[in-house]
Structure formats: C-alpha cells, structure tokens
C-alpha cells in the first residue's frame, strides 16, 4: 500500500520515469525504422495523427457531456462547442477558436445558467 513515505516516493519516481520513457523511447528509434517511415509517408498510418486527436477529443469531451443535466448546463456546453468548431473552420486558428468558445460558453452560462 502507498502508506509509508518511502513507498510514496518510490511510486512517484516510478511513475515519473515510466511517463518520461513512454514519451522519450520512440525518439530512440532509428530514423530508418520501417515503422517510422510508414508513419511519415502516405500509408494507412497517415490517418494516425488525426485519429489520435479525435480519440483524445472524445475522451475529454464525453465525460463532460455525460455529466450534463438540464438545459442550463447542456445549452452553454453545446453552444460553446459549436462556436469553437465554427471558429476553427472559418478562422483556421485553434487559439482564437478556443477563446471564442470559452467566451460563448461563459456568456451562455451567465444567460441560461442563472
């Protein structure tokens, strides 16, 4: 169990090392690696980056969506996402789209969420 100070620090250091290794090990792959070449060329793995982004997006958004209840929560969240998506497509700038989405979400929370 993570009870003693020593156990706690062993767990923290182990988690830090594992987290770093999962991020760093792929860089140790040779640039001539077949897998790496397939990722950078137009194979079926060319969709991996966008598909990963889509997966992360659902993992972040869906738990929020499942926790929403009532129009006072659903309308601001849906409105914020819609504003973000439209801004991202129209303006082509993710940073501005996020700021627009946050402002719309906050505004709708104030109006609908009262």
């Amino acid at each position: 169990m993570i009870g003693s100070q020593l156990d706690f620090w062993v767990a923290v250091i182990a988690m830090a090392v594992i987290t770093y290794l999962t991020r760093a090990l792929p860089f140790l792959l040779s640039s001539r690696s077949r897998w790496l070449r397939r990722l950078t060329e137009g194979s079926s793995l060319a969709a991996l980056g966008p598909a990963l982004l889509a997966g992360i997006a659902t993992a972040v958004i869906m738990p929020d969506v499942m926790a929403l209840s009532g129009a006072s929560q659903i309308v601001p969240y849906a409105g914020g996402l819609l504003a973000t998506a439209l801004s991202a497509r129209r303006l082509g700038n993710a940073g501005v789209a996020v700021i627009v989405g946050v402002v719309v979400y906050g505004g709708l929370l104030l109006v609908v969420g009262r």
Binding site: P50, A57, A94, A97
Partner: peptide, 21 residues
C-alpha cells in the same frame, strides 16, 4: 464560475484541433 469557464478551454482546444485536421 470563472473556474468552471476556464475548464472549458481543454474540450474546446481538442475540438478546434480536430476540426482543423
């Protein structure tokens, strides 16, 4: 409320990046 609004930035960020992809 400020804290709640700021938390929305992460879902918005990922949605924006997906839309651009």
């Amino acid at each position: 409320m400020l804290s709640q609004v700021m938390r929305f930035a992460l879902p918005a960020l990922f949605l924006a990046l997906v839309c651009q992809s």
